[in-house]
Design a protein around this nucleic acid. Structure first.
Lengths: 199, 199
DNA sequence: TCAAGGTGTGAGTATGCACTCACTCACTTC
DNA sequence: GAAGTGAGTGAGTGCATACTCACACCTTGA
């Protein structure tokens, strides 16, 4: 049960092969921007495999279908959001700030800086219409986020609805870069300071 | 100048060919559900042409690229929304009802009954990330809808923002059929009666 | 009646895709 | 060291796709 080789140099890992779990992580990391940019159908698995540094054949061993890979990417983007919200809520608690507002700000920052998370969400929403696996993943996503928001903000269902609605608007406005448009509609729909969605 | 064959049955129109404009309309009608279901990349132009009752070759004469066709479909879905809102506002005016509320209800009905309009919007939003033509079409769409809503409801920018945010939430919840889910998050996020978004 | 131009197509081309198969090599166990 | 298992791949297969081209037919105007 003891590792046999204390003899080999300890600076290098004795193992040259990666574990399947490491590869899976690498694939998800590589897949995220590709799905974000091109959407489900136009994202080539060859490109994802290349980005992960493995062969396409091995990609399909680890994720038997492209759809399973897509769902895993949706779940990963959900995890990113959960992390973001949790950190923001922790910070709000520590500094005595309004958690609803802090989580909202953190979300705006997240989708503004990490467009992959945003675009994966949008593609997944659109695919939900006719791809049951994506629909399920999106429902799970909303379930988790709603539970987290309810717990950390203590808001009423009505307040939470408003807060989610604001999030959906941020998504779309960010996707079309409305903040770069100098027109009344764009100014009105991208004004998230001193916001009605927060408390 | 007289059609040469008064001998043929007069119940048939003398013209056997359609005009290009009629064909264009037929193509858009056929393209809408295909793009809605499959998204931009996975929607085959062969299937669209077949649905429109013409050859694929002629489709490409009328819409030189698939992208132009996609943009035209986005614009058509915008027109549907404009019609819906206009009718609802007219009705509200005629019957002394609140236009904001009536337009909101009409929108919910539209996306609930005509999923094509909804899904085309969602696909277009997702494509906006990396397809400038789709982004432009979506911006135009928001510009037109915002102008209409502002004129017909007289709402403040803040009120209009709330109203649009509610619309974005309706979109997503409808896409994932959240109203069929019996869980707290789904009940809260699909409760659009007596709504905070309406005045 | 005939030319001009619009309507319309069959049959491609070149490319890209998800997924498979047969196979090699690294590592562990006994 | 032998035997088993998991990591990893080169080289496909079969099919679908956007777009093209040469060509035919219908309609109109003079």
């Amino acid at each position: 049960m003891v590792p046999p080789a204390a003899t080999s140099t300890p600076t290098k890992p004795s193992r040259t092969l990666s574990t399947a779990e490491e590869r899976r992580e690498a694939i998800l990391t590589a897949a995220m921007p590709v799905f974000a940019e091109k959407g489900y159908h136009a994202a080539p698995t060859t490109e994802i495999a290349k980005g992960a540094g493995i062969s396409q054949a091995y990609l399909f061993r680890l994720f038997p279908t492209k759809e399973e890979l897509f769902v895993a990417v949706i779940e990963r983007s959900r995890e990113r959001m959960i992390e973001t919200f949790t950190e923001a809520a922790d910070r709000a608690d520590a500094e005595g700030l309004d958690p609803t507002e802090q989580m909202g700000i953190a979300y705006g920052d997240l989708v503004g800086s990490d467009r992959d998370v945003l675009l994966v969400q949008l593609h997944a929403q659109a695919m939900s219409g006719f791809m049951p696996a994506a629909r399920k993943a999106m429902r799970d996503c909303f379930a988790a986020l709603y539970a987290l928001a309810a717990e950390r903000t203590g808001g009423s269902p009505e307040e939470l609805k408003l807060w989610f609605a604001g999030g959906m608007l941020i998504n779309v406005m960010t996707a079309i870069n409305a903040e770069q448009v100098d027109q009344p509609w764009a100014r009105a729909l991208t004004d998230f300071d001193g916001d009605c969605f927060n408390g």
